[in-house]
Simulated scan of single mutants.
Amino acid sequence: MKQLLILSGKGGTGKTTIASAFIKLADAKAYADCDVDAPNLHLITGWNTEPKKTDYYGLPKAEINLELCNECDQCRQNCRFDAIKVEPHYKVDPFSCEGCGVCEYVCPAEAITLKPVVAGELMLYSDGEKVFSTAQLKIGNGTSGMLVTEVKKQMKSVAADAELAIIDGSPGIGCPVIASLSGVDMVLIVVEPSISGISDMERIINTAAKFGTKTAVCINKYDTNIKHTEKIEEYCKKQELPYIGRIPFDSNAVKAINNGQTIVDIDCTSGTAVKEVYHKTMSLLFEKGGN
């Protein structure tokens, strides 16, 4: 299975719009949405069936047994996350607790235990031919990287024989992006021509380089700032990075997404441009002698 990961250094670049178009063009049998904090690929991939849902357990949370608690205050004094409250009895704030276990260790009355907590939900769509893996992390939980790993495992376990898997990653360079990068064959970075877009592009390129992953770049909404578009193209040339095309700003793209369609489902300029980017990406991904 060849795994193509689509990333952007920042949100709002059109990463998911391009990922959904690639899935449609490739008629992909396996794909995943690894933006577990705010998944939205399911809105435009046309699934009418309910997914198989599985609880995801992240880090445990501390719980205080008030019948055993002698209110010695050791737990509160030693909690570096300020998760122990006294209102009026000792209580753990689950949104602040990191499950480190210090409070359990220092409690002389053994009144504190770490309990497993559901931190999110894995979802798997499958019709016997195609597989779509995604998840939703619950508010206040910080184990997004671990959940991304589970999303990828879930996809591969069901669609191990698929020739191609397309993965829609998270914005930024944090834990979910690092987990997404692990084991993929190629990264396509979607950049917007803005100052923040260029800065974040450089950060995600450097992150991908640490994994030794083949990387290519395309520019979305290139015509909103030609000067910055040219800067991005020059940067790719200097860094000897494959630059595989421009996609114009297109108001019809918004209409398509709002109708639950991809930009290649309608006749529009962005859809025409993304087809060329798709073919260049596939050639680079499956090139002879490639990784």
Rank of each mutant, 00 (worst) to 15 (best):
Y57L: 14
K115G: 00
S270T: 09
Q261I: 09
K237Y: 04
P94M: 07
K85C: 03
H89D: 12
A273Y: 03
A111S: 10
G142Q: 11
T262G: 06
L124M: 12
M155W: 04
L284K: 05
C103Y: 04
G289C: 07
V217H: 02
V36E: 02
F286K: 11
E230P: 08
V264E: 01
E230K: 15
S194Y: 05
Q261N: 11
V148A: 01
S196P: 01
S196F: 13
K238R: 15
V86A: 15
A159P: 05
E63Y: 15
A179I: 11
S133G: 05
M201A: 11
A253W: 08
S96F: 15
L124P: 06
Y90T: 05
D267C: 10
L285T: 03
N291H: 12
S283N: 13
T149F: 07
K29Q: 12
I23S: 00
N141A: 11
G140H: 09
K152C: 02
C175F: 03
N78F: 15
I167V: 11
Y56C: 12
S251M: 14
S157I: 10
A209Y: 08
N65A: 12
L188P: 02
E71P: 01
I247D: 00
P193T: 07
I167G: 01
K152F: 06
P193Q: 03
C79W: 10
A28L: 08
S96T: 09
E202W: 09
W47R: 10
T262K: 04
E63T: 14
N291T: 14
Y56V: 12
I257R: 09
K237T: 09
P60S: 08
Q136G: 07
L41Q: 06
I166F: 03
L43S: 06
E110H: 15
P171E: 02
K29C: 04
G142L: 14
L188N: 02
D265G: 06
M155G: 05
H89E: 13
D35G: 04
V151N: 00
M201T: 10
C75P: 03
A160M: 07
G260A: 10
Y235N: 03
F249P: 00
P39D: 02
N259A: 13
R246V: 08
Q154Y: 02
I64W: 10
M155I: 10
T17D: 00
M1T: 08
F286G: 00
C175Y: 02
L124Q: 11
V254Y: 05
I205V: 14
M146C: 08
M146I: 13
I266Y: 07
T54N: 12
L4P: 00
R246F: 01
I112M: 01
L124I: 14
I204P: 00
E150G: 01
K275A: 03
N48F: 13
T207F: 04
K52Q: 15
I189P: 03
V187C: 11
F22L: 04
T262F: 05
S251Q: 14
N40R: 10
I18S: 01
V118K: 15
Y105P: 01
C34S: 06
A21E: 09
Q239E: 12
P39L: 08
T113Q: 12
C69R: 03
D73M: 15
E163T: 12
C107A: 02
F95P: 00
A38R: 09
